Structures are given as structure tokens and as C-alpha cells.
Amino acid sequence: MKDNSKQGKIVDTEISIHPSMEDRISKFQKECLVEEAEALPPIKEGEVDVNTDFIFDLGDKYEVSVFIRNGLPKPVNLEKIPFKVVNKKEEVLGSKIFDLREMGQIPPRTVRPWKVYFDKEDIKLGENDLKDLRIIFDTRLKAERTINVTFENLPLGIKGEHRRKYEKFLQSLPLLRLGQVSMTAYKVEKTKDDGIAVEVVIRNGRANGIDVERIPLSIYDSKENLVASGIFYLKDVKVSPFKARIYSFTFSKDELIREDIRLNEWRVDFRLNKNISAGDEVGHEK
């Protein structure tokens, strides 16, 4: 992928580890990734490219480790990207379209390590050796216009690791398209009064602020049993353009449908359960 408005100058790129991987790789692994990224061929300003690190045969599929570099002076987000597999003669042995939204936003002038998987039937290996194969972008490469939002309502008293957890969670969420609004549950826990509190992150990808007037919530436990369901009617709740806000919604003990609650695993659905009446306001928000 190329941006022809500014091209030709060689740019230096730094490693960019996805936030969800930061705590899962060792210092040694990161140092190895840095060394491998530094050994990649030069990239020019205005280019986005992919380089193959290795291809493993996992038995039923191929694991491909790649480096995707962003030579643009702005972040880039990749969505449905066609990759082609070629050999030393540049012959195409296979292709597949990957959804790379989980890669998140790749900062300017950085290189992001990632892994993709090809099924065996996707690649006609023949007499070719895996070490001689590489992955290239198809000419249909598409970058989507997405928005990077930041919190606007985290209290100043939230500092250190507690604050970083909120910000890390926000960065790990799926990409937010321009014009999109999303709601995601951050945490579900019991209250001191044996009720249940749900923390929800609301993201606004629109160029104008939004008013949030009602939020239906249904909570299910680890066995998919309905725990609570209702609609929260809100007053004066606004989310600014390209911002995120976090709110806590609480069901009291009397509003819970069952008492034998298992919240070691949970699921929040932003719909009213079909067996629940929509007439009454429930709980409270803050």
C-alpha cells in the first residue's frame, strides 16, 4: 500500500507490540523481535508493507509470523486484507483474506509483529520448501477509516496501575469505525449489598456528541443462566466526539433473578431479555 503524496525517503521504524501481548511476552522475546525488525529491508515514507518471519507446519494448518510496517506519518488500521503466498520464483501458491481488525491501530513509523494461519488447502505447496515461501499483500489492500478514542471521564484519583488497566482495556477493544458508537462491558462484580454492578465503556466515533438516554442490560453467568435484566433510563449523559466514557450500572439484590450466581465468567448483552417486561426502570447508574 502506498501514499503517493510523499514518497522516496527512507524511514526508521520502531517495534510496536499489541497491548494484549505486552504482558505475555518476555523481555528476551521482545529483544529478539526488535533485532529481527531492525534487520528488515528499508521502507520508504508513504508505504505499508509485510515481511515474512517464518512459516511453521502445525499439522492441520500453517502458522505464518509476519511483520507489518507502517511507513506513514499517521496511524493505520487494516481490516479485510488479502494475502498471497509466493515462492522464490514469485509464483502464487495460495491466497486468503484475513480480518486484521484485531491488530488494532498501528502507530506511525512502527512495525507490528503478528501471526496469521492458512489452512492446508489454502496453499498448494507442491515441491516447494516452506522456508522459501513468503507472504505479500494482494493489490486489493484496504485501509479503513477508524477512530482512536480516549477516556474523558476517568476521575483524577484513579492513578497508576488501576488507571493503566482502564486505558489498556480501551486500547484492546475492536477498532471503532468513523461514525460508529459502541458499548462494551468492562467488569461485572457483586456489591457490598449483594447486588451486581456492571461497568460499561461507551465509545463515540462520531464527529458530534451523543446523548445516552437508555441502556438495556442483561447479565448471564458462566452457565448462561440469566442473572439480571432491565433498562436503565439516564439523564444528562453525554459522550463527546471521539471520546469514551465509563459508567457503572447497579442491580440491587431485589432486582436479581437468581441467587446462586457464578460470576467467575460472565456475559453482558445490551438487549433486554425477551422474558423481562420493559416497563420499569431498574437499578441506578453513576
Rank of each mutant, 00 (worst) to 15 (best):
V198C: 11
A244E: 07
T110C: 14
V48C: 14
V116H: 05
V268A: 09
K238M: 04
R163S: 06
V201G: 03
E79W: 09
E79C: 12
S16M: 02
E281M: 14
G179T: 04
N128F: 01
D236L: 06
M21S: 08
K159E: 12
G126H: 09
R140G: 06
V64I: 15
K253A: 14
V181G: 08
L78Y: 08
S16D: 12
S222P: 03
I123V: 15
D122F: 01
I43W: 11
N208K: 10
I106C: 08
R140H: 03
K115G: 04
E199H: 10
T52P: 05
I55P: 01
I97E: 06
D3V: 07
L154P: 11
K6H: 14
V200G: 04
T139R: 15
L154G: 11
I25H: 07
V188F: 14
E121N: 06
G205L: 07
L272C: 08
E102N: 05
S182I: 11
Y220A: 05
N77G: 14
E79Q: 12
R134L: 02
E45T: 09
V92E: 15
A244R: 03
K80R: 15
R245D: 10
V111S: 13
V200H: 06
N128K: 07
P107L: 04
E167M: 00
V111Y: 02
L217Q: 02
I68N: 04
G279D: 15
R101F: 02
R267F: 03
A228P: 04
K187W: 11
A143N: 08
R24D: 08
V227Q: 02
L256D: 01
